[in-house]
Amino acid sequence: MKVSGKPIGEFRGKTIGMRIVEILENGMKTESTDQATGRLLGTDAEHIGTDWNVWRFPDKISGEGIGVITSKSGEIATYTASAFGKGTVGSSEVKLHGIINFRSSTSEWSSLDGSSFPVTYEVDSEDNIHWKIWEWKEKT
């Protein structure tokens, strides 16, 4: 997935927990929890989220996640996300592309309520995460 437009959110942090949920015929299902800091719509924010990923060997991944983003001023946004991509067997490295769906009724983030945006998500071999939320840009 190639995204166009500008990022409306960006977060960096760490995977703080991971476990194998299920062994599949040609892969596994994992669960991981991340904590991160960053910005959403220009506001400093903190994030905590949990993802469930199905790894299909050797390197295909599909996943879904849920999370909460909060600001020091009391803004709150929750989300669900779905993504697909590639990972490295024997490592926590992944690169995923997908869609994130928001719910928020707080003043600064109310424009996100009920909206979906493209998202890119990466984890390196040392469990550092980096993800971006992109605006939709119409082709003209």
Rank of each mutant, 00 (worst) to 15 (best):
S91N: 06
K86H: 12
A45K: 01
T88Q: 15
E122Q: 04
S82Y: 09
W55Y: 14
N53Q: 12
N26P: 06
E25W: 01
T120K: 10
S107E: 00
A77E: 00
W136T: 10
D44L: 08
W136H: 15
W109K: 03
F57E: 11
S110P: 01
W134D: 01
L112S: 02
E75S: 07
A77Y: 11
I69A: 11
M28N: 15
W55C: 13
T70M: 13
G67T: 05
W109N: 00
G42Y: 02
R56I: 07
T33W: 08
H47Y: 14
S91D: 08
S125R: 10
A45C: 04
S73D: 05
L112R: 00
V119P: 07
E93S: 14
P118T: 03
G38M: 06
K72W: 01
F117N: 09
K29R: 15
T120D: 14
S71R: 02
V123I: 15
W55L: 15
G27Q: 03
H130F: 04
V119F: 08
G42P: 12
S62E: 15
H130Y: 05
E64Q: 13
E135Y: 05
S104W: 10
E64L: 13
P58F: 02
Y79R: 09
S32G: 06
E138K: 14
I76P: 07
S111W: 06
S73H: 07
G90S: 02
K139R: 15
S105G: 05
V119I: 15
